[in-house]
């Protein structure tokens, strides 16, 4: 049984002269709350749209739950809920009626499920009011309710707290955490907000100018560590470890090589480096705040809010 719910291989998209997404590779495991972080215009929304089949990639594959989006479009999206950018609704209809439209598209989703998701997102009192009278926060909640309707295993949210006041942001974050824990839903959250990722995500990838520049776990009790290998033989170490199983990320820094590695592989890597006669000065675990990490990764090109 595969644990990967979403796999993106070499995804590329160009709009005219602008290369919006450049060979993006990602793997998301079941149960992850994945933060897809990047400044405005980095290509996050384009990537999301390619995952959902709304934008045709120039190259690459999207595999959801084992189904390739190109070949098994329906099966791939069957257990996916999504809210893309500002959630859009038929404003002349009520919140309930808008959800009913989504319910109609699925065989196994019933009236009672609509009531259930309305309750989950706390819109019970407003469900029968027209959406045109909803605040931004209520629309975001309704968008999340819609994404929940088909009992999804993966929910993709694009800037879920955009336009919300601090209290609204807190409530949405709490809602995502609750859903992740209680229903084991995998979340793919696209945002430009550092603190949002830090508070709710267990894994994060940074996208800058269409490229993934980093992909790492955030939780303290994770099985992956960032370690720094201090060596003068940076190229040799890089060559040796870049395709090594269990090494997720590798980058050459000033006085060595930094790798993101599964904890139980550290010893093996140590042995490997030794057997290849590479001169290693130290191997040191790397600990830094998320904010510092991002600034280092992006070269300070981030809007931290």
């Amino acid at each position: 049984m595969f644990n990967e719910i979403l796999k993106i291989d070499n995804l590329r998209k160009r709009f005219g002269n602008v290369e919006a997404v450049k060979d993006v590779n990602l793997k998301i495991n079941k149960g992850d709350v994945f933060g897809f972080l990047g400044p405005n215009g980095a290509g996050k929304s384009t990537t999301i749209r390619m995952i959902l089949g709304l934008v045709k990639p120039d190259n690459g594959n999207v595999v959801i739950n084992g189904y390739n989006l190109k070949d098994d479009y329906k099966k791939a999206l069957n257990k996916v809920g999504a809210m893309v950018e500002t959630p859009s609704f038929y404003e002349y209809m009520t919140g309930y009626e808008n959800l009913k439209l989504t319910t109609n598209l699925f065989k196994n989703v019933k009236h009672v499920d609509v009531l259930k998701v309305i309750k989950i997102v706390g819109l019970k009192q407003k469900a029968n009011e027209k959406v045109k009278g909803y605040s931004v926060g209520m629309k975001q909640r309704l968008g999340i309710a819609r994404a929940l309707l088909n009992n999804p295993e993966l929910i993709i949210l694009d800037e879920p707290t955009s336009g919300l006041d601090p209290q609204g942001k807190k409530e949405i974050r709490k809602l995502i955490t609750n859903l992740s824990e209680s229903k084991n839903i995998t979340f793919f959250i696209c945002t430009h907000l550092l603190n949002e990722v830090e508070q709710i995500c267990n894994r994060v990838a940074i996208l800058q100018e269409g490229q993934i520049i980093s992909n790492r776990l955030l939780t303290e009790d994770n099985d992956e560590k960032w370690i720094k290998i201090y060596t003068n033989q940076k190229e040799e170490v890089n060559k040796l470890l870049k395709d090594y199983d269990g090494v997720y990320n590798i980058k050459i820094s000033d006085n060595g090589v930094e790798i993101n590695i599964e904890s139980n592989n550290i010893e093996e890597v140590n042995t490997l480096l030794f057997t290849k006669n590479l001169k290693i000065k130290y191997i040191v675990p790397k600990v830094e705040s998320l904010e510092n990490y991002y600034f280092n990764e992006t070269g300070g090109k981030f809007d931290v809010i």
Partner: peptide, 14 residues
């Protein structure tokens, strides 16, 4: 323009 055209598409409609 309103973004509602995509709603059926992201719910597996061709």
């Amino acid at each position: 323009n309103n973004g509602t055209f995509k709603l059926s598409l992201i719910n597996s409609a061709k």
